[in-house]
Amino acid sequence: MSLPKEKLLRAYRQMKTIREFEERAHAEIMNGQIAGFTHLYTGQEANAVGVCENLGDEDTIISTHRGHGHCIAKGADVIGMMKELFGSSEGLCKGKGGSMHVADMEKGILGANGIVAGGPPISVGAALAAKIRKNGRVAVSFSGDGSVNQGTCFEAMNLAVVLKVPAVFVIENNYYSEHTNISYAVGCDDLKARTESFGFPVFVADGADFFSVYEAAAKAIEHARGGNGPAGVFAETGRFHGHFVGDPQYYRADGELDDLRENSCCLKNFRASMAESGDVSQEELDAIDAEVMALIEQSVTEAKAAPRPTPDQVTSDVYINYSAGSA
């Protein structure tokens, strides 16, 4: 597949930004600088970027507990995100949501989500609005191989078909929901077929390959945008870290992580395909790497120096305040 050079450079930059954001977040969590529960997206970058490179600002996404990658891919401000992870009042959500609740309405990011499968029904609503207003927008929700077993996910998929709305369901199969393998938690042999049985087409992708995801997502999004109802993307992928930072990962086979990092790295794959096609030189990619590293460094420096929230901010952004209670 040939894409304009500008797009190639951008896709690589986005994937690299996610990778380095996550690796740095990991380090800062280990240093005790970032509080709370954080789920890293390292290894799955091509999924978020392959999908979001097909979207505009007016299209929406809704993400999951593993949301940093989706948010960066959809254009969230990296520095604002890092500040949010650090809990600063200058964070994207003023330090009120943290890692699991990054959101940016202007970029069409309807939020990461701490409730597994909380997102898909909401995304159907965004798609319904697009259908009513006939504005050509699509609404994408991300789910994992675990999330798809939740009733809300089934309900959302069926409702999207019934209402024939431009909803796109992206399923990232990284083979695990926390410590449980898909071969146990998904009862049937073929999750793609189960998803299609709701009555919409599902396009399969290799989640370690930007081009594969990009193409599959392009088909799904075109289908939805064209007024044909929902569509899906099913990507096989792998996460390079534990479910959460500190997970002992008893579920992994010996050598599984090394194998993933070695053979399922979207950045390596992208570089290899550029070397083959000659569309972008390795030096150009090196230059992006350096810029990304600088950006991530800057984001952490700024996040550490950013103002901390004050107690009076606990009760801002609530509809009503009552004097009862002690804060």
Binding site: A35, G36, G87, S88, S89, C93, G95, K96, G97, G98, H101, R308, P309, T310, P311, Q313, V314, T315, D317, V318, I320, N321, Y322, A324, G325, S326, A327
Partner: peptide
């Protein structure tokens, strides 16, 4: 005297 959390969701930031 009633001592409770305030009428808001639980904030993320450790200080909050």
């Amino acid at each position: 005297q009633m001592v409770s959390a305030p009428h808001s969701p639980t904030p993320f930031s450790p200080e909050l």
